[in-house]
């Protein structure tokens, strides 16, 4: 299948001014400025095929958003080449903008004090969509995203989930071929996240939209993307199937238990359960889910101890990255599937 996005050896270097602390440092920096270069993105390459849903994950500051910003023409790469739908994002920004949509979870496009419908109307003018075509598209999107009730309310009064659904409509009005979603579920509750994930999946399956999704929520990408690119310190540490990651690295969960009585350690009588933290009341354990189903462990905890609260968490992305590095060291010649 033909690649719709080609990224070749791109890097992005930021120059950061360094200053010693305090007033003395400020006065000194007036006369001698020291700069430090930081490689936010360091020589990465990948292709994305038409119709793919690719998840970009990595810890904060890994380079996910910088990569997306270079693909959409917001930032100029320090070196390397990018081609999105046969356009150079920096040189042919306007042409590309007609073909792609962007949603930045932390940078809303909707007018905060006005109803979402006002922003939709404005975007129709920005993309110069003929009135009849616009009305038809808007009707379809409103129905799909189930926002009939809220588009006439000021955006400030919407819930995060409702607002994000409206943000997505705004980015889809012009029928983009590629949709860039940067942290679309940030700050949302589980129900709202689930709805957004379903909508992204539908967009891809029904309309064939190619989706690039960044998140630091593993569950987001696990549910939505078949392919995963993990970035750390500006470098790609994994580019392969989500299934591969799930089988190799997502086979453990973290359980955090708060007990009603002082207990030195959780003794469940199970192998492959590792204590991560032992407090008086709070205990954190890591379990290998391929050996013990999560229900079995939870049942044991509840039957054995007087539990006040229990939380089941995915391993943090940093932990997975460190395991990938470990695996790479252990199997130097291994190739990703």
């Amino acid at each position: 299948m033909a690649a719709i996005i080609k990224v070749e050896n791109i890097s992005k270097e930021f120059r950061i001014k360094e200053k010693e602390p305090g007033l003395k440092g400020s006065l000194k920096s007036l006369f001698t400025s020291k700069y430090k270069s930081i490689d936010a993105v360091d020589n990465i390459s990948f292709n994305v095929n038409k119709g793919e849903v690719v998840g970009f994950i990595g810890p904060n500051g890994a380079g996910k958003s910088t990569t997306i910003k270079m693909m959409t023409g917001i930032l100029f790469p320090s070196s390397g080449k990018i081609n999105v739908i046969n356009y150079d994002p920096q040189k042919e920004r306007k042409k590309l903008a007609f073909k792609v949509g962007t949603v930045f979870g932390q940078k809303p496009q909707l007018w905060y004090h006005l109803p979402a419908i006002d922003t939709f109307n404005l975007f129709a003018k920005i993309y110069e969509i003929p009135e009849k075509q616009y009305q038809q598209r808007l009707k379809e999107l409103i129905k799909t995203f189930e926002v009939e009730e809220v588009i006439n309310q000021p955006v400030r009064k919407l819930s995060l989930g409702q607002r994000m659904r409206c943000e997505m409509i705004a980015s889809l009005l012009h029928n983009p071929e590629v949709l860039f979603l940067d942290e679309p579920t940030i700050g949302m509750d589980i129900v709202a996240k689930k709805r957004i994930r379903e909508l992204i999946k539908n967009l891809n399956e029904n309309d064939g939209v190619t989706v690039i999704l960044t998140s630091h929520d593993l569950e987001d990408v696990e549910q939505v993307c078949k392919r995963l690119i993990i970035i750390n310190n500006g470098k790609i540490v994994y580019d392969g199937s989500t299934k591969g990651i799930r089988e190799k690295y997502l086979n453990f969960k973290i359980i955090q238990v708060i007990l009603n009585e002082k207990t030195e350690s959780l003794n469940l009588g199970l192998k492959n359960v590792k204590a991560v933290f032992k407090g008086k009341f709070r205990h954190v354990i890591e379990i290998d889910t391929s050996k013990h189903p999560i229900q079995e462990v939870v049942k044991k905890i509840v039957s054995k101890y007087n539990v006040e609260d229990i939380n089941i968490l995915d391993p943090p992305i940093e932990e997975i990255i460190s395991r990938i590095y470990q695996n790479k060291t252990d199997h130097k010649d291994q190739k990703w599937d």
Partner: peptide, 28 residues
């Protein structure tokens, strides 16, 4: 879908912003 931005398109956008900004001002 269009692939270029016309001067007329920019003029239409200007008018739309005038309306939108006035609506925002009227909120306050």
């Amino acid at each position: 879908m269009k692939q270029t931005s016309s001067i007329k398109g920019h003029w239409e956008l200007f008018k739309e912003y005038v309306k939108l900004n006035l609506a925002t001002a009227l909120e306050y």
